[in-house]
């Protein structure tokens, strides 16, 4: 039971990181039907910036949570700027191009960001200074560390904030209008270009936070960390129904828990035939299963193809 609870906690922590990144994919896809493959690398930029700031301040005598706060508050504007520039330079000129063109550009941007990061921060794995206390709380036989609490709490706050922004504000209204039909939104006085820029910037802010979480949690950052993470988060977005905000949150959490449980119990369940080496296979197996029965994801709605 202790092990089960611990795996569940591990899964939820991992899942809330996936959710934050998945939201970035889903926001952009919802508004302009583009899969932004460079999103994972924006997470990496967030991790790298947080790490750099944290390292600079590690010996300043400031309390750990404050240093981490300063780190992430530096990373968020940095990632917002990167996200804005990527949209402005790489995607906007291709707004009316065939769908394949921006997809290829997205992959190009991803490679570019990785190589820039390699030049800036080097090729090695960088270690994150241990600034948060390593103390753990015992909850029903399982242990929860401070950083795990920080991750789950801040990701809940960010998701709640995003939901509120989309549902209750004028900006959210404009975003939903643009997602439904850009032309009509323009006729209603919505500046579609600004809305798309804001969407990218919002997604990048979430990515920056996720980057801080990943690097602080696993204690490590490197220039190509965004690739696999981005792929997993994209999977989570598809699992929940891409384009759907709640879907991305649910998909992320679900994928995290599935991965954790898969790694923990696959060996026992199959009598040692399949071990933790099938962890990822298991996650994708669940994805395929869901897509067979619900092609548009768990919470996705069946929508007609865009003109």
């Amino acid at each position: 039971m202790d092990t089960f609870l611990q795996q569940l906690i591990n899964g939820i922590v991992l899942g809330s990181i996936y959710s934050l990144v998945a939201l970035g994919y889903t926001l952009v896809y919802g508004i302009m039907g583009l899969i932004n493959f460079a999103h994972g690398d924006i997470v990496m930029v967030g991790a790298m910036v947080t790490l750099t700031v944290t390292r600079l301040l590690a010996n300043s005598g400031l309390p750990g949570p404050l240093i981490l706060g300063i780190g992430v508050l530096t990373a968020i504007p940095a990632c917002m700027a990167v996200g804005y520039l990527v949209e402005r330079i790489a995607y906007r000129p291709l707004r009316n191009a065939p769908r394949l063109a921006p997809l290829i550009t997205a992959i190009g941007v991803s490679i570019l960001l990785q190589n820039l990061a390699m030049m800036l921060w080097g090729r090695e794995y960088l270690s994150f200074p241990q600034i948060l206390p390593a103390q753990t709380m015992a909850v029903g036989g399982a242990s929860i560390s401070t950083i795990q609490l920080v991750i789950v709490a801040s990701s809940c706050i960010m998701m709640a904030g995003l939901s509120w922004l989309i549902r209750k504000t004028r900006l959210g209204n404009a975003m939903r209008a643009t997602a439904q039909n850009p032309e009509v939104a323009t006729l209603m006085g919505v500046n579609v270009n600004t809305i798309i820029s804001i969407t990218f910037v919002l997604g990048s802010a979430l990515a920056a936070t996720a980057g801080m979480m990943v690097s602080a949690y696993y204690g490590i950052a490197h220039y190509d960390m965004g690739f696999i993470l981005g792929l997993k988060a994209f999977t989570a977005a598809v699992l929940g129904g891409i384009g759907n905000i709640e879907g991305a949150m649910l998909g992320g959490l679900l994928l995290g828990v599935i991965e954790s449980m898969g790694a923990g119990y696959l060996g026992t369940l199959t009598g040692g035939i399949m071990g933790s080496n099938y962890q990822d296979v298991f996650a994708f197996f669940v994805l395929i299963l869901v897509l067979v029965f619900r092609p548009s994801g768990l919470l996705g709605e069946r929508v007609g193809e865009r003109p």
Partner: peptide, 9 residues
């Protein structure tokens, strides 16, 4: 980079 699941097991 994530080993928590196998370590927990």
């Amino acid at each position: 980079t994530d080993f928590t699941a196998i370590l927990t097991s």
